[in-house]
Amino acid sequence: MHSTAILTVFATTLLGLVNGQTTTDPVTGTLGNASVVENNPPNVVYVATLPTTEFFNPKDPRGNVKGSVTAQANANGIGITIDVKFSNLPTSGGPFLYHLHDQPVPADGNCTSTLGHLDPFIRGETPACNSSLSQTCQVGDLSGKHGKITSDPFIATYADDFASTTPGLGSFFGNRSIVVHFGNKTRITCANFMLAAATNATQMNATATGAPVQYTGLGGAGSVGVERGMMALVVMGLAGVFVL
């Protein structure tokens, strides 16, 4: 009986420790969290340049927001690097938002026709994006993941692991658009991405990792490794009890 009591306490304590140290991201999309895109072909560059006429107020005497968004596949094939340059922003209504949208801008320049954000994992816009867990955000929510437009001019460069430069993936943005919004989400202006540079590498196939990015809070240790380590301790503890 004494050995059984020790066994129960030992196993319960260690299993509780496993559960306490093993955590994963909240899953926000119907199809899971965004997957890291791998094997993006290098040297493929897409650019979206804003038009001269504003969509929200075509007769604005200040003219449209000026600037562009350039996106290039990273050398290691994982995700893309995005360069953002905007100026001549409205004098009120910020901080401003900008996103990759699901559809291209039609010939008439109607930004409403771009539909919603690029969202291949069917996340939706609520709850709001948590930038510290960008894999739980919409792929197209650039300002949610990387910061709103808070200055004029606004210049930013950052890596995004979840967008693709190869057609065929839901996260491919090269045939889609960029939309700039007021803080209340009203659309100010928009532009299509155009292929600006490419090499034979465009024939490569990009792939997306099947599992969501995991957050364990344990530095470099993965949750599976922790579970196995703790279970090994449980087994050793059980062996020790039976020896006693």
Rank of each mutant, 00 (worst) to 15 (best):
P120T: 02
D108S: 03
C137M: 11
D152Q: 12
V105G: 03
Y98K: 08
S113I: 04
P127A: 08
H117D: 14
T150E: 04
S143R: 04
E125A: 09
D102R: 11
D152S: 15
L100Y: 12
T112F: 14
S134Y: 00
E125R: 06
H99R: 08
E125W: 08
I149V: 15
T112H: 06
I122F: 09
P120M: 00
S132K: 13
S134Q: 07
K145V: 06
L133W: 07
S131E: 01
D108W: 02
S131I: 04
G109T: 12
T114Y: 08
D102M: 07
P106Q: 11
P106F: 06
G116E: 15
D108L: 10
S134G: 00
G109V: 11
L142N: 04
S132T: 09
K145E: 05
T126I: 08
H101W: 04
L118Q: 11
Q138G: 10
P120V: 01
D102H: 07
H146D: 00
S131N: 11
N130P: 02
D141N: 15
T112C: 05
D152V: 12
T114E: 05
L115A: 15
L118V: 12
L115Q: 15
N130T: 12
C129Q: 01
C111S: 14
R123P: 01
Y98G: 09
I122G: 03
A107N: 10
L142S: 04
L142M: 14
D152C: 06
S113R: 09
P127M: 13
N130Y: 03
D141L: 14
V139G: 03
D102I: 04
Q103V: 14
L142R: 13
N130R: 07
V139D: 13
Q103D: 15
V139I: 14
A128I: 10
N130C: 03
Y98T: 13
I149Q: 05
G140C: 04
I149K: 06
D108R: 07
L133Q: 10
P120H: 01
C137V: 11
D108I: 13
T126Q: 05
P153F: 13
P153R: 14
I149N: 08
Q138W: 02
G144A: 05
T114Q: 03
N130W: 01
L100E: 02
S134N: 09
S143D: 05
G109R: 12
G109A: 12
P127S: 08
I149S: 05
S113Y: 06
G116R: 11
V139N: 12
H101P: 00
S113H: 13
L118W: 09
Q138R: 14
D141M: 10
P104L: 08
P104R: 14
G124H: 13
G140V: 07
P104A: 12
S143E: 03
H146C: 01
P104G: 12
T114L: 07
C111K: 05
D102E: 11
D119R: 08
P120E: 02
T126E: 07
D119P: 02
L118A: 13
A128Y: 00
T136Y: 00
H101N: 11
R123T: 12
T126W: 01
H146L: 02
H117K: 12
S113G: 07
D119M: 06
L118M: 11
E125V: 10
D152A: 11
G140R: 10
L118N: 12
S113D: 15
V105D: 10
T114A: 11
S113L: 13
L142P: 00
